[in-house]
Nucleic acid binder design. Structure first.
Length: 311
DNA sequence: CGGATTTGACCATA
DNA sequence: TATGGTCAAATCCG
């Protein structure tokens, strides 16, 4: 019992670290993208953008794996309490169609926790979501919106999210994620083609290069598929502020403020022994989740973030 | 016309 | 029984 609690705490801590690393990787990818227009002496070495994308994908997978580990355990516990449809014995006059609907209904246990993210100004996260429901929540001024992955049918991606505006600050969206995106694994969905430039540096997106997220005044504004396809697996979260944590761990939240780092500082790292060590660490992630148990995640991300001067 | 969204109903859980 | 999550028919939209 205590071991399970400890494991849960460890998973929360690790997911925070992975999320932080993911933010750093997104910034790194953005900076590499900014190098593109200046092709020549200052241009990003070939393959670095691919590496940045790889880091992002690794972080996404690791985060999803960490979360699914303990949420699936909880699901097992609650599912045992649920009677199979055949045993529920619905009313005799229930039409077959209604029974079919009932059996297809896959509900989350209220005990099942997702990953909570607070986003300011937009609910966009780079993934393509399909809204499947909306509900007025008792005691809340704003309805809760329910989304699932657009590729649920195509690739069986079970990723879902719930979005609700904050009562305290309507410009803040409380987003809770459930399950991992499987739609961008194994090439099910093509990763963004290079070059892909994300402008993280300014809040107003000025500067001429394409920016993420696209400007949108309407709170319900959804990003066009043409735009979103470019970031399917990377989900660059280019908001001025992002807070993330597990939905049941208030104290586990942390804040990441993204800043613009001069490109020349980044370029100073490339090719150095430090960079090689960082790259090797990222590539090792591709070996699988088992290897992560012996990987110094905390040290890696502290090193990464400190070196880039993002904190 | 096909895909996405809306919305009322259904159902599980606390 | 109240509340919240999901379904699916109706509707909207490009």
């Amino acid at each position: 019992m205590a071991a399970m609690a400890a494991a849960g705490t460890l998973a929360c801590s690790a997911s925070e670290l992975v999320a932080r690393g993911r933010e750093s990787a997104a910034v790194l990818q953005a900076m590499l993208g900014q190098l593109q227009p200046a092709a020549g002496a200052g241009a990003a070495p070939h393959g670095l953008r691919d590496l940045a994308e790889q880091i992002l994908r690794c972080c996404d997978r690791a985060l999803a794996a960490l979360l699914s580990d303990h949420t699936e355990t909880e699901e097992e516990d609650t599912s045992r309490k649920r009677k199979p449809v055949s045993e529920r014995g619905g009313p005799a006059d229930v039409p077959p169609a209604a029974m079919m609907r009932s059996s297809k209904r896959m509900r989350l246990s209220r005990r099942e926790r997702g990953t909570r993210v607070e986003k300011k100004g937009t609910m966009e996260d780079g993934f393509i979501w399909r809204k499947y429901g909306q509900k007025d929540i008792h005691g809340s001024n704003y309805p809760r919106l329910y989304f699932r992955c657009t590729y649920k049918d195509d690739h069986g991606c079970m990723a879902r999210r719930q979005v609700q505006q904050s009562d305290a600050d309507p410009s803040v969206y409380l987003i809770t994620y459930f399950h991992e995106h499987t739609c961008c694994r194994d090439g099910a969905v093509e990763p963004p083609p290079a070059p892909f430039v994300i402008n993280f540096g300014s809040k107003n997106g000025s500067g001429g290069s394409p920016s993420w997220p696209p400007s949108c005044d309407d709170d319900d504004c959804m990003v066009s598929p043409e735009t979103t396809k470019l970031a399917l697996c990377n989900s660059p979260e280019g908001d001025e502020e992002l807070r993330a944590g597990t939905a049941d761990e208030e104290d586990a939240e942390f804040t990441v403020k993204q800043q613009s780092t001069p490109v020349h500082e980044l370029m100073g790292i490339l090719g150095s022994p430090e960079w090689d060590a960082m790259a090797a660490g990222c590539l090792d992630w591709e070996l699988g989740y088992d290897e992560m148990s012996s990987f110094d995640v905390d040290g890696f991300f502290r090193y990464d973030i400190d070196y880039l001067g993002l904190l």
